[in-house]
Design a protein around this nucleic acid. Structure first.
Lengths: 218, 218
DNA sequence: ACTGATATTTAGATAAGTCTAAAAATAGAT
DNA sequence: ATCTATTTTTAGACTTATCTAAATATCAGT
């Protein structure tokens, strides 16, 4: 039972939104994400429910079934593998990659994905730090943590980010916090959870909002 | 003005069929190629004509406009570049590649294509010997020729094939005529245009039908 | 020039995914 | 507990690409 491009996108975004809270995903939230109308979302949700890819009760939001979850995770896998390819082998820059990967993730060939995974050396994280599930849908155990959770006094490095807005990317760039950048976590201030780090002989402050969106090695 | 997956396929197949004869491509021929019905083809042709991608007069078949030709050639370019990638870098086998490339050829990102082309080393032919047009749509001048056109007495090697049926591929394999295989063209027999070649110390005969579908270096 | 066979087009229907506008359900405030 | 604002669903329509069945045009042979 093959899924259409559109169905796959719905499943993927239901998955992503469901990570943010443990309630069902609301129709409006999905509509906004998918840049479509709530009525369209309702229609599609019914279709996905008929295919047993989501559980749905009117007015209650949707959740993925195991079947739907499997498909969603596989899309994530493909997306992130392609991103690794685009960034590490084709030399794409940071932000241009995303929309191309949005297309490539829907290419339907399990063999292609396996071969690509092998070609890339079975990477566990994409260049943004997103974990890449294996072909069983299992995510790697994180050898990394959010900067707001790291113990002070540790030397570490930027492994990825949890927030991909252009504003955030630009901010990090300005701070010199590129992917792979090493630095020392000097102190955490309890009253606002901001942190102080040292990199390239400069000491800088990061707000809690920034720190919690940076993945670092531990 | 972006083309849909389906429109691109129509354009590609119109292009390929129009190579075989210099008349317009017939509705039925297209229907057979695309595994659809003649009536569907008529509808789509009208749509393409409205977009000025084909010239069309009722009952007279279709031909590509310059605009349509450009798109068709670009699809071929993408298809063949992806085939190079799949075969040379991902280790795919000969025949499994085609349907994956059929999907990849519709990924819409000029930058991706340029970067892929560069990554692959600007190949001029795909692994089947198909010439790869450059980003202006220009095909490479062939440094190769069909075996039935080569002068006798020449040492040469298999550069590609013009026929991709499984039967033909199996036949070549059995003869030991893999891609890249070197051999000597010993003789051509005028009465049936069959040829005699020597490879790996064996002398074998090839019919005209076989010879004309093998591209060789010259 | 006619006739039968074949190729092509038209007309009307269907399915997927979307929309607008209106109706119905829910949640929050009092 | 009720009212109001918000969210969600329904109903009906539109677009794309397809189909079947029927109508029409072209072609080849006489």
């Amino acid at each position: 039972m093959a899924q259409s491009f559109t169905e796959e996108n719905y499943l993927k975004h239901i998955y992503k939104l469901s990570r943010k809270s443990d309630k069902g995903v609301s129709t409006n939230a999905l509509a906004e994400r998918l840049e479509t109308k709530a009525s369209s979302v309702t229609d599609m949700i019914k279709k996905l429910a008929a295919k047993k890819l989501v559980d749905y009760k009117k007015y209650q939001g949707v959740t993925l079934t195991n079947k739907g979850l499997k498909i969603a995770v596989d899309i994530i896998r493909k997306h992130r593998l392609w991103e690794v390819f685009l960034l590490e082998h084709l030399g794409f820059g940071g932000t241009e990659v995303h929309e191309v990967a949005e297309e490539l993730e829907h290419i339907n060939s399990p063999e292609l994905v396996e071969r690509l995974d092998k070609f890339l050396g079975y990477p566990k994280y994409d260049p943004h730090g997103g974990p890449i599930p294996d072909n069983k849908g299992v995510f790697p155990a994180p050898a990394r943590v959010r900067l707001n959770e790291l113990e002070t006094g540790k030397k570490t490095k930027v492994m990825g980010i949890a927030e991909h807005s252009n504003a955030f990317l630009a901010h990090l760039k300005k701070l010199g916090l590129e992917l792979g950048q090493e630095f020392l976590l000097k102190e955490r201030f309890d009253f606002d959870h901001s942190v102080e780090i040292e990199l390239n002989d400069k000491t800088i402050q990061l707000s809690h909002d920034v720190a919690k969106n940076i993945f670092v090695a531990y």
